[in-house]
């Protein structure tokens, strides 16, 4: 899952970026509205965390522009403006959520997860694909009731595939959502992680869940194919 953080107060921006990355998100960031708008329009993000008072281009303008251009990202406004009028204005301008500073980082993280669920139309935090369970609230994965240990990148990949279950997801889509602007997406890093996931998820005695579609991408789903 890829998140864009647009915040001009450097220490706060750095901490949010660090916290989100450690939670397994690919994070892009911008210190002013101009760069933030450019990032939001150039890459596909699942969630944009947007401050309102920004240099060069303010948050209101970014919000308006992104909604006019039908940007699919869910936008969480993170601001010091705490009046009802500001909240109403923010939501009417197209924000999906509004959080006032100062805030608990755990709450920010929970809201980001909720926005991702909404984006993929998942009403529950438990995604089931055959006998594979992905618990997005606890970031835990089980198969046939057996817990599977995954790194944060591996978890991010399986969660993204689970959100797009039974649909072919191209390598570039995976790159878009799982790697931030600074990652080297030219390499075969996706194939490597798919390989690692297969080793941890697939079992000889259970149906295959991760399918390769040559020239198209990957698909997570129980298609009834045995090993």
């Amino acid at each position: 899952m890829r998140v864009l953080v647009v915040e001009d107060f450097e220490p706060l921006r750095e901490s949010i970026v660090q916290g989100l990355r450690e939670a397994g998100y690919a994070v892009d960031f911008a210190a002013d509205g101009e760069v933030g708008l450019w990032h939001a329009q150039s890459d596909e993000h699942d969630v944009i965390i947007l401050d309102l008072m920004l240099p060069k281009v303010d948050g209101w303008s970014i919000l308006k522009t992104l909604r006019q251009r039908r940007c699919p990202a869910h936008i969480l406004v993170l601001t010091a403006k705490d009046t009802s009028a500001d909240k109403v204005r923010g939501l009417e301008f197209g924000a999906d959520d509004y959080l006032v500073k100062p805030f608990d980082f755990a709450e920010l993280l929970a809201r980001v997860k909720a926005l991702i669920r909404r984006k993929y139309e998942a009403r529950t935090t438990l995604l089931r694909i055959g006998d594979l369970e992905v618990d997005t609230s606890r970031r835990a994965v089980r198969r046939a009731d057996t817990p599977i240990e995954l790194s944060s990148r591996e978890y991010a990949l399986v969660e993204y595939l689970a959100h797009n279950a039974n649909r072919i997801v191209s390598r570039s889509e995976i790159c878009e959502h799982l790697y931030d602007f600074n990652a080297d997406t030219e390499s075969n890093v996706v194939d490597v992680f798919i390989g690692l996931l297969r080793k941890k998820i697939e079992r000889p005695d259970r149906p295959r869940l991760i399918h390769t579609r040559r020239g198209q991408g990957y698909l997570l789903g129980d298609l009834g194919e045995g090993r």
């Binding site: 220490p11 706060l12 901490s15 010091a80 705490d82 500073k101 100062p102 608990d104 980082f105």
Partner: peptide, 22 residues
């Protein structure tokens, strides 16, 4: 005043909370 204090307070709180996660 409240508004101006919110952002640095948020910075402080988030920095400490993120640091404490592990």
């Amino acid at each position: 005043v409240a508004h101006e204090l919110r952002t640095p307070l948020a910075g402080l709180q988030t920095t400490l909370e993120v640091c404490r996660t592990r």
